[in-house]
Design a protein around this nucleic acid. Structure first.
Lengths: 111, 111
DNA sequence: AGCCTATATCGTATGCATACGATGATCAAG
DNA sequence: CTTGATCATCGTATGCATACGATATAGGCT
């Protein structure tokens, strides 16, 4: 009964919702912000900054990696992360296009 | 154990994640799109367009209403919905500001 | 080799989101 | 006032996301 039938949604809508899903948790937003702010992008720093256990932070890092928004490099025993700005820019541009398209569709003869 | 301690996240991050949560389901994105496209914004039309039961659509409509993105008007036995463009514009602007801020923080000496 | 540090992953528990049928509420029409 | 149509809400079931401790992995150090 809880079968979302996600395949029947339009691709354009799925694209936006998929992107939004990535940012739908404050931890992931915070990770992106910290990665953009700090010069050192080490996992331990993130764990220190976030109100989460190390395992949870790693989990969120993995999610961000899976959509390509961040890249991880093994640096000795540590892990260095950074934002893939090319991907970030594409995401941001897509969102911009979406809201722009929405604005253009605006109909004044409604409600 | 599954206590997110959400209160310990920064407000700026929560603001973005809250917004993203609204768009994190294709049904809500689709509803917004259909509302922007169609001249008639009747609930039944949305039910016909979406691969969801009427109860589920109503649920998503309620969620969109709770964040102010759409407004509902009772029109006889029907319900007429429309986007609150003032709110939509504020959301869109906030997202834009966020990504702009992110871009500005970009540090080249990382990774 | 043995140990410490840093991180990823596994396993598990739990809560939230979601989907739906059923029911309730409201209005128009006859 | 009864019927049919439309929609909201309730109750419930279920799956996904999330959080965490525990464990595995890997590298550096002595």
């Amino acid at each position: 009964m809880a079968m979302p039938r996600l395949n029947e949604f339009h691709d354009r809508d799925l694209k936006i919702s998929d992107f939004a899903k990535v940012l739908s948790h404050p931890a992931r937003v915070a990770i992106l912000r910290v990665l953009a702010e700090k010069k050192e992008c080490i996992c331990g720093d993130l764990v220190a900054d976030l109100p989460l256990a190390q395992a949870s932070v790693s989990q969120h890092l993995k999610a961000l990696q899976e959509v390509g928004l961040i890249q991880g490099t093994i640096d000795g025993p540590k892990s260095r992360y950074c934002i893939d700005w090319k991907v970030f820019d594409r995401f941001q541009r897509d969102m911009g296009k979406w809201s722009e398209k929405m604005m253009n569709l605006r109909q004044d003869n409604c409600c």
